[in-house]
Design a protein around this nucleic acid. Structure first.
Lengths: 115, 115
DNA sequence: GATTATTGCTACATAATTAGTAGCAATAAG
DNA sequence: CTTATTGCTACTAATTATGTAGCAATAATC
């Protein structure tokens, strides 16, 4: 299967982006992560490599269209990369995940509060 | 100005949600935060209360429609609340922000890596 | 206390993003 | 060779967001 090069529209730090005219990196990041399935993809890749179709299953059968768009963006952002078998997190991706991971247990408490 | 009650569709923990059939709290949270402007709103409310129109300005003049939808959801999730002047983070909202805040400096490093 | 802001929205039409389904070429496995 | 499996692309339909206008409810000013 060949790599096809298609333009990836991904928010570049330094350039104005949704949420910030300055292109402040964290705003670029939030824009990227705020797109559908982006955080779920990171989450589900955290333990092991996953094939496209495995990611899809874990992401509630998201349509291949968005999934592929998101994967391209996340790869352009060097958070995700192609691996032997499907996709994997890059080192930056793993670091980012490390920031998100604590939300797992926090969310349990939060869920109690809003019930 | 009176409060009008309109149904807020917000992912409830325990019920199946986009990204997770189990309704696992963290997935509910990611779904909520993954909606447009959600994280930006939290971010911009972190320092001080903000009026609707101030939030709007800070969120790159997002349309009042989404903004209001998002604010309702975030209030239903008890992350944001109405305040004397405009809106403010709840205690849970502040805690959540505390998890996100470190991303600010991390994003700077990340931005360097992808240039 | 009338007049002029400002605030927090709603309404509505248009545009962008996402969902959903079908299917195909490229390996991989038997 | 044959049958899976994988990683997509194409296309249409549905959902979300944008963009603009405007209005009722306070708040501030005259």
């Amino acid at each position: 299967m060949e790599e096809k090069e298609t333009a990836v529209v991904f928010p570049e730090p330094g350039k104005p982006v949704r949420g910030s005219q300055t292109g402040k990196p964290v705003m670029v990041l939030l824009d990227l992560l705020g797109r559908r399935w982006a955080m779920s993809i990171l989450w589900h890749l955290s333990d092991t490599n996953q094939t496209f179709r495995e990611i899809q299953k874990r992401c509630d059968d998201a349509s291949p269209t968005v999934l592929n768009t998101r994967l391209k963006e996340l790869r352009a952002a060097k958070l995700v990369m192609k691996a032997d078998r499907g996709y994997a997190l890059t080192d930056d991706g793993k670091k980012l995940y490390a920031y998100l991971e604590p939300l797992d247990s926090w969310a349990d408490i939060w869920a109690e509060n809003i019930r």
